[in-house]
């Protein structure tokens, strides 16, 4: 029995090691590649050239503001919508979930054209600038956002909390801001991070729309200087990791504070 237990206990470790290697090996390889110099030597030359390349900071900032714009618009649209579905139309959950999955199967060119058609009469500031990407990415992020928020809302007794708040005098906006949002804070942060990671790495739509974003810059730079391109990719990953780390700290603290709905009966 104890031998069986020891064998069973090994499996999680094996899985963890294999998964870790699967993720780490490409990164280690990338790091090694970015450090390669002439005559089989290694140096930080490619990392040093990073800042000197034109367009790095511009495209990075463009991607960042598009990312934060996407996060803001997505949450503004999705938190009330998913809450409404949970509260008022729970039978529509599957339907809405199905709709939210469509961006995964719709080809990017169709998505781009669809959004362009919708915004064809919009002002130049929307059509002619990376702002159009915000609207594209909101749709693209829909599957991840919906599922994350749906999981967060399913984990709390939403109807009871909302009704309690309403009974105490809260208007609907107050209910959303002071009751729903704080209690799905982890899910909201998770959705925000997924949005952020998606936008910071999305190439196809930006490229089709001829927008100079960070991933587009990475690809074009990679054609001339592979070392810098890989270094920037790693930097981009590092940014996402830092954000993930911050999120885990914040959500970890919140989880310890909240841990609701497991009261004892006494």
């Amino acid at each position: 029995m104890s031998t069986q237990r020891r064998r069973a206990a090994r499996w999680p470790v094996i899985v963890l090691v294999v998964a870790g290697l699967y993720f780490l090996l490409p990164m280690v390889a990338s790091l090694e590649f970015s450090l390669r110099d002439v005559h089989n030597t290694h140096s930080f030359a490619a990392w040093g050239r990073l800042l000197s390349y034109p367009g790095l900071l511009d495209t990075l900032f463009t991607s960042l503001w598009v990312a934060f714009g996407t996060v803001a618009l997505t949450l503004l649209l999705m938190v009330p919508t998913v809450s409404w579905v949970h509260l008022r139309r729970p039978k529509l959950k599957r339907f809405v979930e199905g709709i939210s999955l469509l961006p995964l199967v719709i080809p990017p060119i169709v998505l781009v054209n669809g959004v362009l058609v919708v915004f064809q009469d919009a002002p130049e500031i929307v059509n002619g600038t990376p702002l159009i990407l915000v609207f594209e990415y909101v749709i693209l992020a829909l599957p991840f956002t919906y599922r994350t928020l749906d999981a967060g809302l399913s984990a709390i007794p939403l109807a009871t909390l909302v009704e309690a708040a309403r009974g105490l005098g809260a208007s609907w906006p107050v209910v959303l801001l002071r009751v729903v949002l704080p209690n799905i804070r982890t899910a909201v942060l998770g959705a925000a991070l997924l949005n952020l990671a998606l936008v910071m790495g999305e190439y196809t739509l930006s490229s089709i729309l001829l927008m100079q974003t960070f991933p587009v810059w990475m690809v074009s730079t990679g054609r001339t200087d592979a070392g810098v391109s890989v270094a920037v990719s790693l930097l981009s990953l590092l940014i996402v990791f830092v954000l993930l780390f911050l999120l885990s700290i914040v959500s970890g603290r919140r989880t310890r504070e909240l841990r609701p709905f497991t009261p004892s009966a006494s």
């Binding site: 007794p157 009871t160 909390l161 309690a164 704080p182 209690n183 841990r259 609701p260």
Partner: peptide
Amino acid sequence: VPANKRDMGMVFQSYSLFPN
């Protein structure tokens, strides 16, 4: 009159305290 304008105090069957 909507619920938030009625001035009714309610205690629910399920635990309804705001966990945050």
